[in-house]
Nucleic acid binder design. Structure first.
Lengths: 169, 169
DNA sequence: CCCAGTTAGTTGCAGACCCATGTATTATGG
DNA sequence: CCATAATACATGGGTCTGCAACTAACTGGG
């Protein structure tokens, strides 16, 4: 936890950029550092809210993906694609969930290369409880209201689309 | 790198949330996942742009902090506060920069507990070059324009202020 | 049919981050 | 003045992430 600051480091950086690199460089640099900081703050809030459930946010995301899958199970590679993380990041994620008894590994019935992760009944219970908790705290987005969040989502959707993501609406 | 998706996982999650938890939960959940994805995309772009300089974005940030400091040197603890990361994250950051010859460790003249990190001439050169490169690519914010970035910055400033950050303007 | 190429998953390595703990040094209150 | 508290940094453990390389298994063209 960083110690208290008596000023805004992002505004300070903007001042330096304006002076040394020109006004036109300021919005982009400020946006990046603001996103980085917002990400850090939100992740911290989410992990704190999930701590009573013994979950982290990445593990929560993986659990919810299984929660809403048709069969309650998915191949690990498909999970990586859906979670938009590298395939090699999925293995330790599932390891943690399996150690907690929330998911179970099982072989694919017809393709012996493939490993399926299946959510357990305890996993389902915990997923529902954790989601209730996160919804109740607005997923760490306070104090932003619905209009601000919609505006944010619109801008970020344009950004994601520009970066090559498939974005609906 | 996650494999291609034929749909938008964020829109898919929004659909599930709308159906199972109510419309009022959608904007917050969508905002969080959008921020997470935008963070991932921007960081990936920045690290790719910094790779030719042998830098990562966190190391670049630390280097720029020294670049704009009055003496070109700062105590490690103060750097953690300014970078808004945990103090224990600063040590390996400075280790990497020192191994590359971009900063130098030195003892504090009057307080023997304190270690100072000082930017070297090579560090100054590389910092300027890397900043030119990042400014030229809009810090990875393409295709967003100045108005969208300003709007984004305004909303995130409100969020940061609400989270307890000191935010100017 | 079989070997080459592809695909699925794991492992090892590294970067980044946080937490808890330990050590050394400085500051402070009785 | 000295014992206690606070400060500065480092270390070890844990998580998440991505890259490169490896094994195992499937697939398809000759």
């Amino acid at each position: 936890m960083p110690q208290e600051l008596s000023f805004d480091p992002i505004a300070e950086a903007a001042r330096q950029w304006r002076e040394h690199w020109g006004e036109q460089t300021v919005p982009a640099m400020t946006a990046v550092t603001s996103i980085m900081r917002a990400h850090q703050l939100m992740l911290s809030r989410l992990n704190a809210a999930l701590d009573p459930f013994g979950l982290t946010f990445p593990r929560y995301e993986a659990l919810m993906l299984l929660f809403y899958s048709r069969q309650g199970s998915l191949p690990l590679g498909k999970m990586g694609a859906r979670l938009q993380v590298h395939q090699t990041s999925v293995t330790p994620l599932i390891d943690g969930l399996a150690k907690a008894g929330l998911v179970q590994r099982s072989p694919h019935p017809s393709d012996r290369r493939t490993t399926l992760a299946t959510i357990t009944p305890q996993g389902r219970r915990l997923a529902a409880q954790a989601t209730e908790a996160l919804n109740a705290m607005g997923f760490g987005t306070e104090p932003l209201g619905p209009e601000e969040l919609e505006s944010l989502n619109g801008i970020l959707a344009a950004f994601r689309r520009g970066a090559g993501d498939h974005v609906d609406l």
